[in-house]
């Protein structure tokens, strides 16, 4: 079990642990997140990266930051789970990549980049993954409408006579 006090000794007071249901969560600043993840992986045995995702807090009540980036970790030996969370902001949301720690993070980071426009510095191949390369919006941001901006209608029409 990760104790808040031991982490505070190492990473200062900017880190805090909360609990909800059976999820333990560590919130840390964007500068320290890579350092913390490396510490968790190498010293505390969280060797399995379950998921990387992001949340756009634009319309969330009482939120101060725009994007939250979430790392779900798992300790394969003990089965303990931990959620690491950090916040980034406009105009240039950016985080260091964790590709050097977990190679499985490759596509997860690309998806976060594709959907939210958060860049991961040091990522070897940060391209769009799900949307077409020409796409210019970030669809999962809250200011992008559900039905898009007409992208789905801009294709040539083939009629029966000409095919």
């Amino acid at each position: 079990m990760i104790e808040e006090s031991t982490l505070k000794q190492q990473f200062g007071d900017g880190i805090w642990i909360s609990e909800f249901r059976d999820n333990r969560r560590v919130v840390v600043s964007a500068e320290q997140v890579h350092h913390l993840l490396a510490h968790l992986k190498n010293q505390l045995g969280f060797d399995f990266l379950v998921d990387i995702t992001a949340v756009d807090y634009l319309e969330y009540e009482n939120s101060t930051d725009r994007f939250g980036v979430v790392y779900c970790l798992l300790n394969m030996q003990t089965g303990e789970r931990l959620v690491v969370k950090t916040f980034v902001n406009d105009p240039n949301p950016s985080l260091p990549t964790v590709y050097s720690l977990w190679r499985g993070s490759d596509w997860m980071e690309r998806e976060v980049y594709d959907m939210f426009g958060i860049t991961f510095t040091g990522h070897p191949d940060l391209r769009r993954i799900l949307s077409p390369d020409e796409f210019s919006s970030y669809p999962l941001r809250k200011d992008y409408p559900l039905k898009g901006r007409g992208e789905r209608h801009n294709f040539p029409v083939i009629t029966r006579a000409e095919s």
Partner: peptide, 8 residues
């Protein structure tokens, strides 16, 4: 799927 990506 009445969403941004799906052709209607």
């Amino acid at each position: 799927f009445d969403t941004y990506a799906v052709v209607q």
